[in-house]
């Protein structure tokens, strides 16, 4: 696991240039999260979209199955807690999580 995703130095592009657009989509910021995840109580949610706008890693996106709500993506959520702090209705709160189900479906609803 130690060198997963690593590139030998000789294979790096000149000056570390990046020619592939959108490569940051593969960047697993969820790996930084530790032991807890934000969970949304949709009973309290007023669909204001602040969590969607404010999340620095775009972990919230409009939920195609529940109009107006936002679903959470554990691959990107780094666990900063900003959404919890900013939600005007205190609809988001921490929930303990185990390392093994870090990337499981977790949209609290």
């Amino acid at each position: 696991m130690a060198d997963e995703g690593m590139t030998p130095w000789k294979d790096l592009a000149l000056g570390c240039a990046m020619s592939e657009p959108g490569s940051s989509r593969r960047f697993n910021t969820g790996d930084w999260r530790s032991r807890r995840r934000p969970i949304t109580d949709r009973e309290k949610c007023i669909k204001c979209g602040l969590c969607w706008i404010i999340c620095p890693d775009m972990a919230y996106t409009p939920d195609p199955e529940a109009e107006g709500y936002y679903k959470w993506d554990g691959y990107y959520c780094k666990g900063c807690g900003i959404c919890i702090e900013e939600c005007p209705k205190d609809a988001i709160s921490w929930q303990e999580e185990k390392e093994e189900d870090k990337y499981g479906p977790a949209c609290g609803s």
Partner: peptide, 21 residues
């Protein structure tokens, strides 16, 4: 016509290799 990005972030998994280069 052949877009590239320069000056990207180098996470710990790449910084050492970038410096070696």
């Amino acid at each position: 016509a052949q877009p590239i990005s320069l000056g990207m972030v180098g996470v710990p998994e790449v910084y050492t290799e970038a410096k070696k280069a």
